[in-house]
């Protein structure tokens, strides 16, 4: 497909700069990764409202809570593995529990981090953050959506976790974002692929190829993972009866698990989860890794064919 690629991190940095002008109480924190997370763009424009705390993710989250309590809209960024993992307890105690007005925007989610390897490839963050009461979790599918999501969380009070990916992503959405709503990217009647983040593009590619084989595939961008769009999941399951979820995350506690819960409680349907199968990743080029772990369009196609087969028996 003839897609235009853009860095979601850069879109984040640019949007922060834009918002800095709109909200004079917007403060951005980073923990020695600002050139990677792109919060440095904000720091350059608004040095008095940018604090790079150094390698202190735990302190960053507590400081974010204190700033928020004193009236600031706070964005706190790091890699997903540090923001959600290293500082988990600080996020729980000082941000989620007291509903602090802090937006955690974590870059470098999933195995698509690439060469840095398993230590830096965060595949548990959606589970960790979704498990926190008061925390809302969003995984944008492209840079257009990143811009809308960042603007939304800035104006909406309370804690959010926004997960971004490292590689450039094709612009596949129109950028319209409605919180708590999944979006049907493509109508279909045989099977539904529900995807988030970097996986949405592969879901679309898979659907295009499957069409040639006579499989009519619905594709849903489920960018709000929590609260998840329960009605849309049930509606699509009623229509196709077969759901494949796709995420650059462990199959446990991520999108697939959430969808499984909704289906089991409301409309039992066939389900296959594409994701990391409870294993750590490894070093490699990000696209090689997605292919190796079955997270690209080919992997999704295999899952779709499998669900078509088992559901026919």
């Amino acid at each position: 497909m003839n897609w235009k690629y853009e860095s979601p991190r850069k879109a984040y940095g640019e949007t922060l700069v834009e918002l800095g002008n709109k909200y004079d109480n917007l403060v951005v924190l980073d923990a020695d990764l600002s050139t990677s997370t792109k919060t440095a763009m904000f720091g350059k424009k608004y040095p008095e409202r940018f604090i790079n705390v150094g390698l202190q993710e735990q302190n960053m989250m507590g400081t974010a809570a204190g700033l928020a309590r004193s009236g600031k809209i706070v964005f706190a960024s790091s890699f997903a593995v540090f923001a959600a993992g290293r500082a988990y307890d600080q996020v729980r105690q000082s941000i989620a529990y007291p509903k602090s007005n802090v937006k955690i925007v974590a870059t470098h989610g999933g195995v698509s981090v690439g060469e840095d390897g398993a230590s830096h490839q965060m595949i548990e963050d959606i589970g960790l953050m979704s498990g926190l009461p008061n925390m809302r979790v969003i995984v944008p599918a492209d840079s257009n959506e990143v811009r809308s999501v960042i603007k939304f969380v800035a104006k909406e009070y309370g804690p959010f976790y926004v997960r971004l990916t490292r590689p450039a992503l094709p612009n596949i959405t129109d950028g319209e974002f409605e919180f708590g709503k999944g979006k049907i990217m493509r109508d279909g009647g045989d099977v539904t692929i529900m995807a988030i983040g970097i996986e949405v593009q592969y879901a679309l590619l898979a659907a295009e190829k499957l069409k040639k084989e006579g499989i009519d595939t619905e594709v849903i961008n489920m960018s709000t993972v929590k609260p998840i769009d329960k009605d849309l999941i049930i509606k699509s399951a009623r229509k196709t009866g077969r759901i494949v979820t796709a995420e650059d995350h462990n199959i446990y506690n991520g999108l697939g698990s959430r969808v499984a819960e909704i289906l089991a409680e409301n409309h039992p349907s066939w389900l296959l989860r594409v994701g990391m199968r409870d294993m750590f990743g490894m070093s490699g080029k990000w696209d090689e890794l997605l292919h190796y772990y079955g997270l690209d369009d080919e992997g999704i196609i295999r899952a779709v064919k499998k669900i078509m087969e088992v559901s026919r028996r």
Binding site: Q58, N59, T63, G66, L67, R69, S70, Q90, Q93, S94
Partner: peptide, 11 residues
């Protein structure tokens, strides 16, 4: 964690 929160308020 409280000292970090205090740092945020003081900032």
């Amino acid at each position: 964690q409280g000292l970090s929160v205090g740092v945020g308020m003081a900032l």
